[in-house]
Each structure stands twice: as C-alpha cells, then as structure tokens.
Amino acid sequence: MSATAARPATARPVRKPKKASYGSRAERRFAFLFVLPAVLLVLVFRIIPLIWGFFISLTDWSGLGEAEFIGIDNYAAMARDPNFQDSMVNTFVLLATLPVWIMLPMLLAILIHQGVPGGKLFRAVYFFPAVLSSVIVGSIFNVVLRFDGSFNALLGMVGIDAVDWLGNSSTALFSLIGVQLWATFGMSLLIFLAGLSTVSKEMLEAARLDGAKLWQIWIFVVIPSLRPIIEFVAVVTTIGVLTNMFGLIYVLTAGGPGTATTLPEFLIWLEQGRLNRPGYAAAISMVLFAFMGGIAYLQIRIMSRNANI
C-alpha cells in the first residue's frame, strides 16, 4: 500500500450557511429613506396624539391655562355617566347589525358576478353613494325621512301610516344605520367583486363536473374562498361604523331624540365642543380606542381559529 493511499482522508471543513443578504449598508439606508416619510407621518399624527390624549384624559383641563392632574377621575365619572352608558348601548346595537353590512354587499357582488343584465350599471349605482360626503347624504335623507318627507308619502300611497323615522327613539337609530349602510356598502361591494375574480376556476369546474348545483357551488366553494375578503371587510367595516358616523348623526339627529342616536364619537364632540371638557372627552376617546382594538382583535382571532378548523 502506498503512502498516499495509507494517508487518512482529511474531512472537509463544514461551511457555515451564509446569512441572508439584504443589500449593502448604503442600499439599506437608501431604502429606509423611502420608509421614513410614512414612519414620521404615523409618529406625528398617530402615536404622539395618542400619547398626548392619554395624558389629557388624566387631567381636569379647560384647554387654557395649566392642566390639573386628577388621575382616573374622568374614567370613574364615565362609569357613572348615563349619556356614556346610552352611547355604549347604541354601539352594541350597531355592532349587532354587522352581519347585514357584510352579507348584503357579498350577495349583490355574487349576483353581479353571475352576469345579470346591467351589471356594470348596478356596480356604478351601488358605488356612487360612497363618493358622497356624509353631510350631503345626511342632507338628502333629512328631506326623505322627515315626517312629511317623500318616504312617508310613498308609504301613504300603499295605505301605511306615516312614521317619524328620525324623531322616534325606537326608529331613529335604525334609520341612521340604514342610511349609513346605503352610503357605504358600495366600497365593500367592489372589494367582494375583486375577490370573486380570484376564485379558482379549476375548483369551480371540478364542482360542476361532480354535479354540484349553483347554490352548492357558491356556498361550499366560492364563499369559503372569500374567507380572507370577508375577514378584511368585517374588520374595516367595524372600525368604520364606530368612527365614521359623526357627520350623519350631526346632520340627521344631533344625537337625539334624547340619546337615542348618540354614539361615543358624537359624545366626544359634545364634551369637547359644547361643554368644553377636553379631559373627559379624551377619556372617552381612550375607551373608544381600546374598545375598537379589542373588537378587531377578537374578530381576527375568531376568524383565524375558524380558518384552522
């Protein structure tokens, strides 16, 4: 045996895996410059006002002079405030109608996607109210829904007595919800239409070959495929109905009759603008922020759990 053959083979050194390369330092700095404006906007207009609002909520301050630190007194007063309690009851009633805010645009999107005659026209008509400001929408329905308005006139033609839609505490909130739904569901409709265009055609064809009926295809194939879209619309709609109804409330009912249509966002304006209590208004804002965050978190957790079943 030769010396070369007898020499034991040396093991090759194990190379460490290379770290993922994210570009040179100069490239990373250049990329950060693109992100910096968005970070500054969020910091200046979101984070800092949120921190400042929390500080104000712990004070008794009129907006002028020196603020007096009072701890959680504003939050304790909120728990005893009947106006705040009524606004939260109205909020839960509003949240109970959320399935309608999701199902209505989804069903209309399905019908339009099926190719009904005039589908493009319907798409434009349904979306048109979404481009109108809440003040314009409120002014229109202030005329339509008043006691001597056109809607009651239409009901009278079929023998139904007139209803004070905006002046009756039992109908005012639901009238307000109906107007807001009419004004905003067009955006959700477009989102669902975009989602329908991504449904796998192979799955649809396989379901047809297996003999599935049309309603079975939509329930067992299409709607499950739209789960991410439904989740997105649910979260966005929840945040929207809790924070974007001030204009309608101000124009249509001013929170009345009594507190029948008062929501926390409108109560914040009343406490700040009418009663000049920015500390108490900030406390309501903090509670509303925490409430919206909690609702959105629960929605995401529940939907994620259902997705894993």
Rank of each mutant, 00 (worst) to 15 (best):
L196M: 04
L288R: 04
F141D: 02
A260W: 00
V235K: 02
K19P: 02
F246V: 12
F34S: 10
G118L: 09
V137G: 00
V241M: 09
A5V: 13
G273T: 08
P17D: 07
G119K: 14
S2D: 13
F147M: 12
E68F: 02
F147G: 08
G273A: 08
T4M: 13
D81K: 04
M203T: 15
I302A: 15
F291V: 12
F141C: 11
L275A: 14
F289Q: 01
N306L: 14
G63D: 08
S225R: 13
L95T: 01
L242K: 00
G255V: 00
L40V: 09
V222L: 05
S200W: 08
M187T: 15
F291G: 06
Y297N: 10
M88I: 03
G178T: 03
G71R: 09
V44M: 09
R227P: 05
L121R: 04
W218T: 03
R227D: 10
F266Q: 01
A206S: 10
S87D: 07
I140V: 06
D81Y: 03
L166R: 00
A194S: 14
F127Q: 03
K19W: 13
P99G: 11
V137A: 04
R146W: 06
P49L: 07
L181V: 11
I70C: 06
F127D: 03
L176D: 00
P264L: 05
S169P: 05
D210F: 08
S169V: 10
L64Q: 10
P224D: 10
F127G: 01
E66Y: 11
G279N: 04
A172Q: 00
F291A: 12
G294V: 12
I295K: 12
A67C: 05
M286Y: 04
M1Y: 13
T171P: 01
A26L: 15
A96D: 04
T261W: 07
L176I: 02
Y75F: 14
M106V: 07
A26Y: 12
L107R: 05
R80Q: 15
R146F: 07
G138C: 03
S21H: 15
H113E: 08
S188L: 11
V199S: 01
S188I: 08
I229P: 01
I239M: 14
L94S: 02
V179Q: 00
R277E: 11
I70Q: 03
G118H: 13
L209M: 15
S150F: 12
W269S: 14
P8A: 14
G273M: 07
N308Q: 11
S285P: 09
K213E: 15
W269E: 12
L40N: 01
A172S: 04
G138M: 02
M1S: 14
S285Y: 06
G247I: 01
I295H: 11
A79H: 07
I239R: 05
P117D: 03
F128I: 07
G240R: 03
I160E: 11
